[in-house]
Structure formats: C-alpha cells, structure tokens
C-alpha cells in the first residue's frame, strides 16, 4: 500500500500536466454532440432534405426516440470507447518509452509492480471520467433535443447496460498495456488496437463474437434476441482471462524483461 501511495501521485501529476487528457475529454464530448446533431436532423425531415448526405446518414440511425438514441450511445461506447480507452492505456504505458524516462524509475526503492498497478489505476480513473462525460453529454443532448419516449425504467435499463459495457471494455485494455511495453512505445499498442478492432468485427460476422474477447462488449450491447449475439458464461470467462493475462503479462514484462 505504501508503494502504491508513492507511485500513484506521480502518475496523476504526469496526467494533469499532459494536454492529451483534455483532448480525450473534448473528443468524448464531441461524439454525443455529433450524435445529437444527427438525431436533430432525423427529427426534422425538412432540414434533412436540405443537408443531402448528412440527412441521408441521419436516417440510418433508426428510430428518432430515446431507445434509438440510447442504442446509438451504447454502440459508440463499444467501438469508440475501446479505441479511446485503448489509446489512454497506450499513452500511459507507452510514453515512459517514447519519453525515455523508464530507466529513471526502475532503480528506485518502489516496487516495479506498484508502478504498473498505479498506471492501471490512473487508466481506470481516466476511463471512468470519459465514460461519465459521454454518458452525461449524451443524456444532456437528448434532453435538449426533446427526444420523445423517456421513462425511468428505460433510463435505468440503459444505465445498467451502459456501465456494464464500459466495465467490459476497460477489461479488454490490459493486453494493450502489455503491447505498449513489449513494443516500447505507442505505435505497437495502437497497431494492436486496430487489429483487435478489425478482428472483433470479423469475429462478429462469422458468429464468433461471444468467444472473441474484443467483440464481447459489442455483443453485450446488442438488443436481446439478436441471432448469434448472446453471451454465455464462457464469454465472461474468456474476457476475464484476457484481462488477467494482459495485467500479469505487463507486470511480468516490467519485472523480467531486459530494460536497455
């Protein structure tokens, strides 16, 4: 605990001083704003006709009511959320290599595992902030646009699904941290992020979504009864194992790899 206390604050100082933190917050504000704009266009067919392509796109969003809008928020969380959280993870671990500061924190009295755990704590807190920003901005947009069909029951159901999806998405980011360390920078984890995202789409297409870790949060957001989009106990076990492997792999890398 003493080690975690010592390593956590420096991680927060590094985060506070970085511009990237505020950039991610702004991006997670813009996403629901854009969705709100689309919903606004979908609600006003006269405007949609004038806007051409934007109008056409907005019609693809489905129903212009709260269930439709919340469905959009969930889908964006499962895909853009993973990109965002993965980027955050890449940055927190990868910058020690790109800034070449790693060697200065290895021969210190704190344990290396406590540094890794503190980095993961910072990532989780950062991701929770992004989750809350997306959630609150999305709901605010829906309220401002006066979208019809909101009920307490719908809100509670959506909130439960939204936060569980967020939790599942955070879990699949630990392997990104491992690739940031293994690749000694930010490029390798971003590459892994893109590949895992593409593979998740492919796994979903061929019906293996419930068994592919990076597709599981997306599968979870699918409406009940969608064919081939049900999660099983094994899905959650696969996801938990992926998270544990990523976490343990990252700690093992800090402990056993040669740092040259």
């Amino acid at each position: 605990m003493k080690n975690i206390k010592a390593t956590l604050l420096p991680e927060f100082v590094k985060l506070r001083r970085s511009g990237i933190f505020w950039i991610t917050i702004i991006i997670f504000i813009i996403i629901p704003l854009m969705m709100g704009l689309m919903m606004f266009v979908a609600k006003n067919p006269a405007i949609a006709a004038k806007l051409g392509l934007v109008g056409t796109k907005s019609s693809l969003f489905g129903r212009n009511d709260w269930p439709g809008f919340m469905g959009l928020l969930l889908q964006s969380l499962a895909s853009i959320g993973y990109i965002g959280f993965g980027f955050v993870t890449s940055w927190v671990f990868g910058r020690e290599f790109s800034d070449r500061t790693l060697k200065d924190i290895l021969a210190l009295p704190v344990t290396r595992s406590s540094i890794v755990i503190s980095k993961f704590i910072v990532i989780v807190i950062w991701c929770i902030l992004l989750i809350l920003v997306l959630f609150s901005t999305g709901l605010l947009m829906g309220w401002l646009l006066d979208i019809p069909g909101l009920s307490v029951q719908l809100f509670l159901r959506f909130s439960e699904k939204y936060f569980i999806t967020s939790f599942l998405t955070i879990l699949i980011c630990t392997p990104v941290a491992f690739f940031a360390c293994y690749g000694r920078g930010i490029i390798a984890p971003i590459g892994f992020l893109i590949i895992s995202l593409v593979m998740a789409q492919f796994a979903g297409l061929i019906g293996l979504g419930p068994y592919f870790p990076w597709a599981i949060p997306g599968v979870y957001t699918a409406p009940a009864g969608t064919e081939g989009m049900q999660l099983f106990l094994s899905s959650y076990v696969i996801l938990a194992l992926t998270c544990i492997l990523g976490f343990a792999g990252t700690i093992a890398w800090w402990r056993y790899a040669d740092h040259y």
Binding site: A6, L9, V13, K14, R17, D99, T101, D104, I105, P109
Partner: peptide, 21 residues
C-alpha cells in the same frame, strides 16, 4: 538523462523524492 518533458525541474525532482519515500 531524460525527464518528464511537461513537468518542471522542481516537479521532476518531486516525483523522484516521492518514489524514494
């Protein structure tokens, strides 16, 4: 030696101080 580029000289040293208890 490389230090955290966005932190000042004082902050960089403060981090080391903390990591050294």
């Amino acid at each position: 030696p490389y230090s955290y580029p966005n932190l000042t000289v004082y902050e960089n040293l403060e981090i080391i101080l903390r990591l050294r208890f």
